[in-house]
């Protein structure tokens, strides 16, 4: 456990020792701020049943920001160690491979949460400026941010997996992007086959990221997607640890 914390602290500090975290935070807040404004503008067009929380977490800008962020947070995690040669000194220290993988994963998760944390203030500021609450219940906030965490964990674990595979950051980024897009568009089948194929629609809806986010941001919290995302995250991390143990020296 001690080595996990030592590695985790170094990984988190590494984001801030280079301009990586600052640049990411700047552009990420720019994009999410624009997304929030777009959501407010959409609500201003007339009476609607959706809240600003639901509007914020279900736009194209939101998913672009979300999907672009993950590779930027994860592609360097292992690839850079291979590239610098520091993987040799890292794994020949008395540290378990699982600690290395988990420390890198949780460091990226920490930065992911740190980047999303300021968006809470958008909703806090919404109330005094618009003279109305951002969502009908606290469940909508908990649901939206909870789902953000769950999908974030899954995608970050996919990013770690991609980074173990190659010493090239760009290739790791492309692999993690491809895996995420696969997940994203598998769920999109639910919308494409809404009318012509009810079975495909039903099946795809169960795995649809957008469907889950829509429901959770309305405050409709279901345990099945929670178990699904947690299981997949644990499975991907397990796969990453096994791959790292057996194939790290091949890079």
């Amino acid at each position: 456990m001690r080595s996990f914390w030592i590695l985790w602290k170094r990984e988190v500090a590494a984001y801030f020792r280079t301009p990586r975290a600052t640049i990411l935070l700047f552009f990420f807040l720019l994009l999410t701020g624009f997304n929030f404004c777009a959501g407010v503008n959409a609500l201003n067009h007339g009476p609607t049943e959706i809240s600003i929380v639901e509007a914020f977490f279900n736009t194209l800008f939101f998913w672009v920001a979300f999907l672009a962020l993950i590779p930027l947070l994860t592609m360097h995690l292992f690839a850079e160690e291979y590239h610098l040669g520091t993987m040799e000194t890292l794994v020949t220290a008395p540290v378990a491979e699982a600690s290395i993988v988990l420390a890198k994963f949780f460091a990226s998760l920490f930065l992911f949460l740190l980047l999303w944390a300021p968006t809470i203030f958008y909703f806090v500021l919404f109330w005094p400026s618009a003279h109305q609450i951002a969502a009908a219940s606290y469940g909508a906030y908990a649901g939206a941010y909870g789902m953000l965490l769950l999908i974030g964990m899954l995608f970050l674990s996919l990013g770690c997996f991609a980074s173990v595979l190659t010493p090239h950051q760009l290739i790791a980024g492309i692999i993690s992007c491809s895996l995420m897009i696969l997940f994203f568009f598998a769920g999109m089948l639910a919308f494409l086959h809404q009318h012509d194929s009810p079975i495909i629609h039903e099946l795809a809806a169960r795995f649809s990221l957008m469907e889950h986010m829509t429901n959770f941001s309305r405050g409709l919290i279901d345990t099945r997607p929670i178990v699904w995302y947690l299981s997949l995250t644990v499975f991907t991390l397990f796969l990453t640890i096994s791959l790292f143990k057996n194939c790290r020296h091949k890079n």
Binding site: T18, L84, G85, T89
Partner: peptide
């Protein structure tokens, strides 16, 4: 190791 790999930052 050869080349003394280190973290430059």
């Amino acid at each position: 190791p050869e080349g003394a790999p280190l973290y430059p930052e």
